[in-house]
């Protein structure tokens, strides 16, 4: 079975994959950039994902979901041109500061090591308007499933 996508760019694969993930479309995730082993993903501010009704700050869980998805995409970039399903093994997030209210956040995820079975990823989240302001930082591992037919998701 041909699982390669040499005719489709990394960015296109990432976008197609995100489009197939209902929860990520609910979060309105937008893949801005995809490189050899890294991605940049934007999550806009939405009233629906506010975690604290007193401050209107985005919920940490939504930021976690953004980071989890971005980490998976960074892995997909490293695995390219193959496409595999890569469930998360574990992930840790440190919440550095609350992001600016009313604005989205940017996640940069990088696959710093790819082995036969495991994807190792680091990710950082920054404020939309002040991309120097770190909001959260995380580290995660993903399992390479190598299921036949996985590429159907993005083809």
């Amino acid at each position: 079975m041909n699982t390669q996508h040499t005719n489709i760019s990394r960015l296109e694969i990432c976008r197609r994959f995100v489009a197939s993930v209902r929860h990520s479309t609910e979060l309105k995730l937008d893949v801005l950039d995809a490189n050899e082993s890294s991605v940049k993903v934007f999550m806009p501010y939405q009233d629906a994902i506010v975690g604290n009704p007193e401050t209107q700050v985005l919920h940490g869980g939504a930021i976690f979901a953004l980071m989890d998805q971005s980490g998976g995409l960074a892995g997909a970039c490293a695995i390219y041109p193959e496409f595999e399903i890569t469930p998360t093994i574990d992930m840790r997030v440190d919440h550095i500061r609350a992001p600016e209210i009313g604005y989205g956040v940017l996640c940069q995820a990088e696959c710093y090591r790819l082995t036969q079975h495991v994807v190792f990823v680091r990710m950082n989240v920054f404020e939309e308007r002040n991309p120097k302001n770190l909001v959260a930082t995380g580290v995660a591992t993903y399992m390479r499933m190598k299921l036949p037919g996985a590429n159907k998701v993005v083809s």
Partner: peptide, 27 residues
């Protein structure tokens, strides 16, 4: 709830949604 689905082929819940659920539960 279909809005929490992550893997459409299995189908499975989005890991981020489950994590968000756990974090919100703790709060």
């Amino acid at each position: 709830n279909e809005t929490n689905v992550g893997n459409p082929t299995l189908p499975a819940l989005h890991g981020g949604a489950v994590a968000g659920f756990m974090e919100q539960s703790a709060v």
